[in-house]
Design a protein around this nucleic acid. Structure first.
Lengths: 165, 165
DNA sequence: GCAGGTATTTCGGACACCGATGTATTCTGG
DNA sequence: CCAGAATACATCGGTGTCCGAAATACCTGC
């Protein structure tokens, strides 16, 4: 990445770490991780890999058997229209099924199909293997730091979106 | 989110925290943070807010004066076609300028315009304020945990994408 | 029975990406 | 000097990830 012929500023510090505010470093970290995760998954399962958004819905459904669209949306903090679309695709590919709730015919109860269970299991296996490998390459301190930060990161996300005025 | 009428499994543990592998929790955290960040930014600056991908390029450009498309792509781990497109939009909106390198006329040197600097500064101010507010709401331990994990997260991302076989 | 809510779907649109393909331009061997 | 081979980008088409506004079907209280 050397910019061959360019002043490039009087060279503050080659390592842009200190001096960079946490806000930006955090944002950068999230972006990088997201991209790395996506790329990593694709390189593992080049053939027809599931879109992340669909995997997330499958995960929720694996724990909360019949779920309504609205609940899925709330839990994932997505617009209902988004979930509706996702579920539509997943029905087409046979991962989930939609049944009309007999008690209230407006709501549709979404459930995992066997294919859905199988796909989720396969995806999870591959993904965990890949991510665990990367985690193993970190030294003990780093690994501990990541693990320790997880709950804090969730809380941070919550603060961010419930201050959504 | 109560799933009214459904067995929902013999109820392992209501709190799906322990038992959930780190791989998934990490992935979830990244996804949630990403969405929260996006939403938070939009709620702050509803009017014509800059797309994240553009902001990131502006940030790089603010530190590495004239940069070539390829360098930007490498640094951000994006395909050159992606950066090329982004730069195209940014030129249209006046944030950056493109000049042909006289030494090698294939390469184009991208630089920030004054408008680009200004927009970046405004964005950064707003974004940092918002994120710092959320960080402040965390207790000291959480905040420390997040800060401590940042370098580890970057390294993790690196491991993930350089094991890209 | 109908006005007003509620759950979902549909539609259109913005963004974030990538790979394949095309086009200058430069470099290289002979 | 000059036909490739390589390089740096640009362009295209495609997928995924989202949202808000407008329709639709259904339910409920009066």
């Amino acid at each position: 990445m050397p910019t061959p012929a360019s002043p490039d500023r009087p060279a503050t510090v080659p390592n842009a770490d200190r001096g960079t505010p946490d806000a930006r470093r955090l944002t950068d970290a999230v972006t990088r991780l997201r991209r790395a995760l996506r790329a990593s998954i694709r390189s593992d399962y080049p053939w027809e890999t599931l879109p992340m958004a669909q995997v997330e819905l499958l995960q929720v459904l694996a724990e909360h058997s019949p779920a309504r669209i609205g609940d899925l949306a709330t839990r994932q903090r997505l617009a209902t229209s988004t979930v509706s679309g996702l579920v539509g695709q997943m029905i087409t590919s046979g991962l989930v099924a939609r049944a009309t709730d007999p008690g209230d015919r407006r709501v549709s109860a979404v459930t995992l199909t066997d294919a859905g269970h199988a796909q989720l299991a396969a995806w999870t296996r591959a993904h965990e293997r890949r991510l665990d490998t990367a985690l193993t390459r970190l030294d003990t301190a780093d690994r501990a730091a990541v693990r320790a930060a997880l709950p804090a990161l969730f809380r941070l996300a919550e603060h961010l979106d419930d201050s959504e005025h």
